[in-house]
């Protein structure tokens, strides 16, 4: 029987995004709630001055939280429902499964992203090059989040462990770093701590592209190098160290 890789990838998208949104739309509200809550809070606190930054921050948070959402979804399918074991014992490879599940998380983020892109279009002044830079940075953060989500889902044995890792990663990657405000708002020497998180580099690229901060060329190059390196290293670790077949 001829096997279609496209079908195998689409199966994950159907299960984790299309059917979930169609049959249980309240899940969709959950993905929108956090980024838009932050926009509202930041806008009120800054009397509207940081609205644009908050929208850019929400874009980053959406990509990160949906990427990390992979961990919970995979853990649920693996540990609670044992559906992943049915997939492991089928012709689907780990790579195909994970690509499909990653796309499903992106599909889940689409309604939120669509609203945020429309807001960016009307309220931000971004050049074409800037838009490409923002897209690239968001994609790399998504890769980072997916890699972490996949890795931790394969080493957790129940959903409680998964929640613990998920909460920790979400805080470290999307709540603590200066996503909704410039890093200069953080007093020294605490700015150095913010640079531990890859999200800080993505936020700087996005904020620079939208004109909220002015990075030097060298600073921008360093941000891209760090972000790309972290994405590549984490994805490599996830692929090599994750367990598809249990040991």
């Amino acid at each position: 029987m001829a096997r279609s890789v496209a079908s195998q990838i689409f199966a994950s998208v159907l299960v984790n995004a299309v059917y979930a949104m169609k049959n249980f739309p309240v899940m969709l509200i959950n993905t929108m709630l956090t980024p838009f809550s932050f926009i509202i809070v930041i806008t009120f606190i800054s009397h509207g001055a940081l609205f644009g930054l908050a929208v850019e921050g929400a874009l980053i948070m959406t990509m990160v939280s949906n990427g990390l959402g992979l961990q919970g979804d995979l853990s649920h399918l693996k540990n609670d429902l044992k559906v992943q074991e049915m997939v492991v014992g089928s012709p689907t490879s780990a790579t195909i499964y994970i690509v499909g599940m990653a796309i499903s998380e992106l599909v889940y983020a689409l309604p939120t992203l669509a609203i945020l892109v429309v807001l960016s279009f009307f309220f931000l002044n971004v050049s074409v090059i800037g838009a490409i830079a923002i897209g690239g940075a968001l994609f790399l953060m998504f890769v980072v989040a997916i890699a972490l989500g996949f890795f931790f889902s394969t080493i957790t044995s129940d959903v409680i462990q998964s929640f613990a890792f998920s909460g920790m990663l979400s805080t470290l990657l999307s709540a603590l770093p200066p996503v909704y405000y410039p890093i200069t708002y953080i007093p020294m020497p605490y700015q150095y701590i913010a640079y531990i998180s890859p999200t800080t580099y993505a936020a700087q690229i996005v904020q620079n592209a939208a004109g909220f901060i002015n990075l030097s060329t060298a600073g921008l190059v360093v941000d891209w190098i760090v972000l790309i390196a972290v994405a590549v290293v984490l994805m490599s670790i996830a692929i090599k160290k994750s367990r598809w077949v249990e040991v």
Partner: peptide
């Protein structure tokens, strides 16, 4: 094909959707 111990169908899906998805994971159109 394997049906693991304690496997449960995905609560937010229907049987038709589950079987279709599983077959697609196996490469069926």
């Amino acid at each position: 094909a394997v049906l693991p111990q304690e496997a449960r169908p995905i609560p937010w899906m229907t049987p038709r959707e589950l079987i279709t998805s599983y077959l697609m994971w196996r490469g069926v159109g």
